[in-house]
Design a protein around this nucleic acid. Sequence first.
DNA 1: TTGTAGGCGTTATCAA
DNA 2: TTGATAACGCCTACAA
Lengths: 369, 369
Amino acid sequence: MARSSTRRGPAPAGPTINDLAQHLGVHKSTISRAMDPARRHLIGSELLARVETAARELGWRPNRAAAALSTGRSRTVGVLLPDITNPVFPPILRGIEDGLDEEGYFALLANTSRPDSRPGGQAAAQAAVERMLAQRVEGFIVATALRDDAWLESLHASGARIVLVNRTSDAKAGRSALPAVTSDDMLGMQLAVDHLVGLGHRRIAHLAGPAYFSTGQARRVGFDRALQTHGLQAAGIVTCGAYSIDAGAEGMRELLAMRPAARSVARSGALTAVVAANDLIALGALQVLHAEGIEVPQQISLIGHNDMPLLDQLRPPLTSVRIQHYEMGLRAARLLLAALQGTPEAASTAVLRPELMVRGSTAAAPGSR
Amino acid sequence: MARSSTRRGPAPAGPTINDLAQHLGVHKSTISRAMDPARRHLIGSELLARVETAARELGWRPNRAAAALSTGRSRTVGVLLPDITNPVFPPILRGIEDGLDEEGYFALLANTSRPDSRPGGQAAAQAAVERMLAQRVEGFIVATALRDDAWLESLHASGARIVLVNRTSDAKAGRSALPAVTSDDMLGMQLAVDHLVGLGHRRIAHLAGPAYFSTGQARRVGFDRALQTHGLQAAGIVTCGAYSIDAGAEGMRELLAMRPAARSVARSGALTAVVAANDLIALGALQVLHAEGIEVPQQISLIGHNDMPLLDQLRPPLTSVRIQHYEMGLRAARLLLAALQGTPEAASTAVLRPELMVRGSTAAAPGSR
DNA sequence: TTGTAGGCGTTATCAA
DNA sequence: TTGATAACGCCTACAA
């Protein structure tokens, strides 16, 4: 008799707070209080115990959907990724979820890059955000930001809570950039260049990532600055069209065309090292170098960025700048949750330290000792 | 004046259905109907147009949390993965989300394997399911099933809709197994063995996965049966303790100890090929073979399973059984959604065909031509 | 320390 | 074709 007779949903929903209240002969608001850690102390300890055992016995589970309607808080945030299939994102996502989990939040996920990459790529993201908003997510964690992302700005302007991960947007005139958790890309490039220079390299080129990503831009600038600290100049910079093996291969071909490689140690002016903006680009470069019969690291040293899985299984194992992906996701989640709790202006930005994983793809420059 | 004065939630929620109704001078039920494709036809076409433009102008978004409370349907399903960081799962998850997206559903995700793998591994899964149930998910897609999973059975028995992916549970006495979408592991092993036998191999060993996973079991059985079709017997089977590089390395060492490898083509009885239950195990085996100075594929051919990313970048590139991970996820999502729509007993199980990706880690058996 | 009343935004049922 | 009314299950004032 506990259940109202007019249930509609198809789901076999369990007992409600009313059932519990009746069962115990108390009012439902008492139950509600008993379940709220913040107000539990108002309840008589004996009653509290009864409520808890009864809840367990009846198998009552507070209905969050109902609570969400009442409080306006869904305990849910939206997460925008380009594509979880890209090895960079799983650890980020894992970090995000672990962070959200700490406060009992869930993520609603959307992969915004369609496999067929049909025109209007942002359209998928917008549709996803629309649906997430309908589900009343409390905020967004965004890994798809462009440096100049008008749509994201307007989403933010409309009052949405947003934290960016991995990629940032540029600060605009009179307005600071969105809160973000990123890796120190400048430092990453400095580590890479320091390592190469230490090995005697002086003619170092860069395969850059797309300039509309903050990572592409920052790593490129970081590369230049790092060279300057050693009094060197770039031996060539090619901007790849994407963070992909194919784009990396194409970039490497271009680089070789403008700057013949160090086939002989005697050949002055030839390239002896390449720093790629990302591991996939590095892999593409590696393929081309193989195909050209140029040996890595004997003739050319190669460094990637991200330290994605299995890099250490390659031959040669790829030296790469390791980024704290998991940590980035974790911090982003905590940052967003803090903002949602109303924590005023808790540091709205975090920059994590990368680390160079030295492996077999880098060695002393040919001709140096 | 449209907004009620006693808003509570912190989220800047937009206008409600009431605001829209007032604005248009109609009753909210009319709005509700107008937004429901199934009952839209009841609305005058002129009014319908007015509703749509007004909704757009006011920026009204139906509140799904409220709808969920009213209908009992959250348009949300729970997804249980061991760890999104394991390269097998991203494409599965992507498939799941694309499938859910087709019907406007979202996934709530949980990674159930704690990184510190503290005791009570299932505990994380149970806690996650508990929270998902509180969020009123309509069903579950589970990639963490054990062959004998009492907890999962009881979850199912309690009325939860469940579809398994990748891993299945065993059918029990008098009860059929849970709905599932898997790969044809038997066939996968047949493809692998056929390939090796065709290359002249006759002494083939298996590095099996854990027996409590359906994949470990099925691949092992499939390996044996495939050998039988060629009148052969296993040249050795070692069960690895996990699907990991380390476990694979250990398994390979064990295998070599009991069955010295084909260091010389003359040595009769020596191993000439190994089929691993999974790519990570194969990678572990590869490391040990390298360390032992045994050449792949010249002395021993090696086959993995799953065809995870970057396998083709290794030296040698690893031959592997490719599984339709994305498709598995997609089908699992559709299966679950169909069940939720009440489609009676739409085929509750799907088995997808794997494909052998032949690469450089397999070659003619030493001594054969 | 506990109860009462009203509302959160939507959908469903019944009337009109 | 549209309107009125009553849930859905929980939370929050306020009263007792």
